[in-house]
Design a binder for these strands. Sequence first.
DNA 1: GCAAATTATTTCAAGCTTAAAGTTTTATAT
DNA 2: ATATAAAACTTTAAGCTTGAAATAATTTGC
Lengths: 156, 156
Amino acid sequence: MVAGPLPTPSGPGKDRLRLWIRLLRASRTIEAELRERLKKEFNTTLPRFDVMAALYRAPEGMLMSDLSRFLLVSNGNVTGIVDRLVSEGLVARARRNGDRRTSMVRLTEEGSKAFAVIAAAHEGWVGELLGNVSEEEARRLTGMLTSFRSNWEGRE
Amino acid sequence: MVAGPLPTPSGPGKDRLRLWIRLLRASRTIEAELRERLKKEFNTTLPRFDVMAALYRAPEGMLMSDLSRFLLVSNGNVTGIVDRLVSEGLVARARRNGDRRTSMVRLTEEGSKAFAVIAAAHEGWVGELLGNVSEEEARRLTGMLTSFRSNWEGRE
DNA sequence: GCAAATTATTTCAAGCTTAAAGTTTTATAT
DNA sequence: ATATAAAACTTTAAGCTTGAAATAATTTGC
């Protein structure tokens, strides 16, 4: 999905295809850089960061299915990542009284502290990597992407 | 990287962070949908499609290192994907006379035909999934993402 | 009350992904 | 010439990812 079928596609519908290719290349480029820095500076990974970021927003905890829905990844995927975070003491599972199928997942004290540090660095990196986009332009782009997505979400 | 540390981040640099989150969510959403359709309709995957798309643009073939640079993935990664495509008869490796370290990778006749069919469907899907973005808006967004990326590429 | 369907999660197999280490071949510097 | 470095690629280990199958608990329809 990184390249179009021809060097410079043209014709009806080609503008959207080109947009998609740019979108994908932009996010892959930034993603690769963030992944590398997370590894080098904090010896962690993007998926771990994603999970911790989601949990940081929800101090009361989240269900596994909430996590997977929010992160747009499969259920089984989240299981593995959470398993590793638990084994590292950054995240805890808590069985619930009401429904014994589910477990509330939340950051431990240690996980919360660790995340705060990483998140600060992360925000700085994003600011740096998107430095060529003015704040004004960032808001405009965000708006365009938001309206696109909210339209699209209606179909799933 | 899908979520910010807080529900609605605010403050200096937050606009870029929010942009990054939107960008990532948009591309993940579309990517997931395309991946699913590639699997269901053609029993193939996004990475295989990416490699074939790159090779389709280069009838004379590409080096492994060209492929990995173009696709923004690691060298070892491409090895595995190409291995599988070769075993399926869609791609062929050709040793070169000049430099025996390298091999030119290209689509087979069969691979080229198969890709043309898939690419047509793919383009239609993208047009559909980005249907809420007007062609005009698509061009504007593309321009913004292009200038961002060409600026950023200077740093790597 | 109880079978059937649904829900939440885990397990599994196959494939993707990276970074690092290893192999082979070519280029460079004495 | 010949060691040394560089380049192109593959292999490896660990982890990520999906979709499908399995498990366990809850809810629904009679």
